[in-house]
Nucleic acid binder design. Structure first.
Length: 864
RNA sequence: GGGCGGUUAGCUCAGUGGUAGAGCAACUGACUUACAUUCAGUAGGCCAUAGGUUCAAAUCCUAUACCGCCCACCA
């Protein structure tokens, strides 16, 4: 084999290695072999399905790195391992993207019509929809690509429809006319989870509503005067003394002269504004509830186009902001506008397009959460599903406790059509019951029209763990891989997706057909691992629109996939909710890969020798066993960052800095090769490409990706320690600096304890060991006890003085410490555990020893 | 309005009861034949503040401040 270059070039190797894996079938569970009677439980991760509009960002890069580490670890452990990939049609997001590109050509989707528009979306999807899959591969993700699923595959859509029909039959899905969040720009309803509350400067208007049968008025504060056209009551708190007598009176809505009653309701806050509130049941969620209680009429004055409706009389068709201006002006002219004051309050915006949301009443499909939340909360509460880190359990339960019914219909074109049928196609006229049929196929007979609406994207992705495995059929895959092992995600989709998968799974797997006797067998996954969010170095959110994003693929191109993965993983901690990403860590990942590369080069270059094992050989063997145990433990508990750091420190410091330096002089090369081989195994999940490459360079017949993990237990109770050796070397090195000895001059060295690493010691310190402690030697105490003596003709009077000063300083520092420790020991006596006291006494003994060593050294110095 | 995180060296972060660590940056030295994407070393911290528990607190408890995130129907 040609000699390896000094520097590892990841770009030259990574794609070819990936190809080798793909061709080997390693990504498939059991290497693609049919399942026999499995003794081992499968390990399965469902990929949080990326949108087809997506391209890889930093958050993905981290998430996929974590998942790939766990997948590869379990695969090597011998678990039948499945990483199920797929993409999401992403209704609103995709429709918006395609609409935007059409708009650039001056076309609206309405110009094309539904069918032609959908054809365009499919075209777009063909071209760009799998971009992120390619990017995942570049990162080394070992998904089973043969199972790639798209949420609008025929089979998947069938499952979605099936779920809807079953929910309907169970009475969980219903069609209702209720107040919902309407986005005028998306022209669709959206769910409570797809809105954002943003604080904004605005005005609070106080408006006079005159009494109808007496002089005077009642004052009402509002931030949205235009909704007054839909007012059907004024509400006050029943205990409010100011208004008690007025309850039951009628007032006139200004400008439109509609009489409405004053009602009493406990939901009113007496302390806010005037304590009297206008009630607009059609356009405010709280008002809708109040209206419902008091059986108030509902007047829809805001339409789905964001303009006022015909019910707004003279204001019909006006855009909202214009209507507001006009109404304020007219109120002012009529002297009914009492005051206008600046006011900060939060408005709701569409999560997708930041358009202000209009609450309005509309006929939509809903999932009745009251029927699902109990079981869902229970599996979290009883830890049938476990959260990592555990604090997310509380978040989850809290959200479930307060969850509202879920609006699942969307007025979009791109998506999965709702399988409901009726005779008239005018939406809204279909009655709640009796006037439509819910079934996958159209009902018998002519004239049935399908509901034009599509499902919320999350309704379909909620079925992901089941539907990708073949549900509603009770397939072999479903039997084998469901429940999956762990769901790994950022915290942003805990409610949008994770919660919905859980209640979908619990509900649909209950059917006898699946033979799932308890909740533990129905849940979609056993663990939920919430990983940190990736922020910019300054703690900002990474976003394309803010220009704060960093493209992970650029990092991959510059430093390689392994370096990018490792750099990210090295930065995370199990308990952290966010990392401030610094690209320097990727460079350091690249350096680490290079370090590994050069360790391999070095091991290639040394000749095998038949030397007996040294103490260092035993030490490194024990160390890697320990590391293997700790890394394994960390991976089992999702401490991926901790595992990465452990490996980094072991490889760089223990193995390269110490062991290999010793090996240059003495030691068993067989041990070195074996330890490095084990290190490659342990590092493979983190740096899959370079480890695979070096593995094959070592003429291993198998692929590392499929090689068994190290499962030995750490054996030695008192593992050998290199402390003394390291202490000697460090002490000699700093003594050299102190004495200003030329780097290359060979010194005489006496050590108080013998070492079987004497040859290495001499080389690493440029010294010649001597048996006896000559009186002319300068003595330096070791940290762990003992002393080294240094003799050299290069020692000058100046350097002796410097050494004396240093020793004095050290001595004084130790005296201070000794005093402190003695005091602590006195405090501890009689109160602390005997173990702690013994430890403290030992520390003191060591201190005393060091002090006397220094003292002797000082005396010796004075002799010079 | 509620909840959850965080606050440790210039920067990014480890460290869950025994008196503080790493990497990067800075500074000093070295092209030591695996690696200058390297090696050896130096310096740098009242562990946010105030109380409390304890022989002993960065660590446990309580408040406060600041930063971040999540949830929420205050017109």
């Amino acid at each position: 084999m040609a000699p390896l270059p000094k520097q590892y070039d990841p770009l030259q190797h990574e794609p070819a290695i990936y190809k080798k894996w793909e061709e080997s079938n390693a990504f498939k569970p059991n290497n693609g072999q049919p399942f026999k009677r499995q003794d081992k439980k499968p390990f399965t991760i469902m990929l949080p399905l990326p949108n087809i509009t997506g391209s890889l960002h930093m958050g993905h890069a981290l998430q996929y790195s974590i998942m790939d580490v766990l997948i590869r670890y379990h695969r090597m452990k011998g678990d039948p391992t499945l990483w199920q990939p797929g993409t999401d049609h992403a209704g609103i997001a995709t429709q918006n993207v395609v609409e935007k590109s059409l708009r650039n050509q001056g076309i609206s989707r309405h110009d094309l019509g539904r069918e032609k528009f959908l054809a365009k979306v499919w075209e777009w999807r063909e071209e760009y929809g799998n971009q992120i899959i390619q990017q995942m591969k570049r990162l080394g993700s070992s998904c089973d690509w043969s199972r790639l699923v798209f949420t609008m595959d025929d089979k998947y859509m069938r499952a979605v429809q099936e779920a809807f029909v079953r929910y309907y039959e169970q009475g969980i899905v219903y069609r209702g006319n209720r107040i919902i969040n309407w986005c005028p720009r998306c022209t669709s309803v959206i769910s409570d989870l797809e809105i954002n509350h943003v604080e904004q400067a605005s005005e609070l208007y106080t408006i006079a509503y005159p009494f109808s049968s007496q002089p005077g008025h009642i004052s009402v504060a509002t931030t949205r005067p235009e909704t007054m056209l839909g007012d059907t009551a004024i509400a006050v708190h029943p205990a409010d003394k100011r208004y008690k007598k007025l309850v039951g009176e009628m007032v006139i809505v200004p400008l439109i002269n509609r009489p409405i009653p004053i009602i009493a309701d406990e939901r009113i806050d007496q302390s806010f504004g005037t304590g009297a509130v206008k009630v607009t049941p059609a356009h405010d969620p709280l008002d809708a509830e109040i209206g419902n209680t008091h059986k108030l009429p509902i007047i829809n004055v805001i339409g789905e186009d964001g303009r006022l409706t015909n019910l707004a009389g003279a204001y019909a068709n006006l855009p909202l902001d214009e209507a507001r201006l006009q109404i304020i002006n007219e109120l002012d002219a009529a002297e009914l506008l009492i005051k206008t004051e600046p006011y900060r309050h939060s408005i709701t915006l569409c999560d997708r397009c930041s358009t202000p949301i209009q609450p309005l009443i509309s006929r939509q499909w809903f999932v009745d959460m009251s029927k699902l939340k109990g079981a869902t909360t229970a599996v979290a509460e009883q830890e049938i599903i476990k959260f990592f880190p555990p604090r997310w359990k509380k978040h989850f339960i809290n959200w479930m406790d307060n969850v509202h019914d879920w609006t699942i219909s969307r007025q979009l074109w791109w998506g999965q059509r709702i399988p409901a049928w009726w005779k008239e196609d005018t939406r809204g006229t279909a009655k709640e019951e009796g006037n439509f049929v819910v079934s996958i196929d159209p009902p018998e007979g002519d004239g049935w029209l399908q509901d034009p609406d599509v499902f919320d994207t999350w309704f379909s992705s909620a079925l992901w763990p089941m539907a990708t495995l073949g549900w509603p059929d009770n397939t072999a895959d479903l039997k084998t891989f469901y429940p999956t092992s762990v769901l790994i995600s950022g915290r942003d989709i805990i409610y949008l997706w994770i919660a919905r998968m859980i209640f979908s799974g619990l509900n649909f797997m209950e059917d006898e057909k699946y033979a799932r006797p308890d909740q533990a067998s129905r849940i979609p996954f056993e663990h939920v691992f919430i990983h940190p969010t990736v922020l910019t170095k300054t703690g900002q959110r990474m976003s394309k629109s803010l220009g704060t994003g960093i493209d992970p693929l650029e990092l991959v191109d510059e430093y390689g996939a392994d370096a990018t993965r490792f750099g990210l993983l090295h930065q995370i901690s199990y308990d952290n909710q966010a990392i401030k990403f610094d690209p320097v860590s990727i460079r350091s990942g690249r350096n680490f890969a290079n370090k590994i590369w050069n360790i391999a080069r070095f091991l290639e270059s040394i000749e095998d020798r038949d030397q007996p094992s040294t103490y260092a050989d035993h030490w490194i063997q024990q160390r890697i066993q320990q590391v293997a145990v700790e890394v394994t433990g960390n991976l089992e508990s999702y401490k991926v960052g901790e595992a990465a750091r452990l490996l980094y420190d072991f490889i760089w410091h223990d193995l390269a800095d110490w062991y290999l330096e010793i090996l240059k002089v003495q030691g068993d090369t067989k041990v070195a090769h074996a330890v490095f081989r084990d290190a490659l195994i342990l590092m493979h999940p983190f740096l899959p490409h370079i480890t695979e490459l070096l593995w094959s360079n070592k003429n291993n017949a198998d692929l590392l990706i499929s090689h068994p993990w190290i499962t030995n237990k750490a054996s030695a109770k008192n593992p050998p320690s290199l402390d003394l050796f390291q202490d000697i070397i460090n002490t000699v090195r700093s003594a050299r600096r102190l004495l200003d000895l030329p780097t290359k001059s060979v010194i005489d060295l006496y050590i108080s304890q013998p070492s079987d690493l004497a040859p290495a010691l001499q080389t690493m310190t440029h010294s010649r060991l001597v048996d006896a402690d000559a009186s002319s030697f300068l003595k330096f105490p070791l940290i762990i006890g003992g002393v080294v003596g240094i003799g050299s003709s290069d020692i000058t009077a100046d350097s002796i003085e410097a050494a004396a000063k240093k020793l004095d300083n050290d001595y004084n520092a130790l005296i201070t410490q000794q005093t402190k420790y003695q005091q602590i020991l006195r405090q501890m006596t009689g109160k602390a555990s005997s173990k702690a006291i013994t430890a403290k006494k030992q520390e003191l003994a060591l201190l005393a020893e060091k002090l006397s060593e220094i003292d002797r050294s000082r005396h010796a110095l004075q002799g010079h």
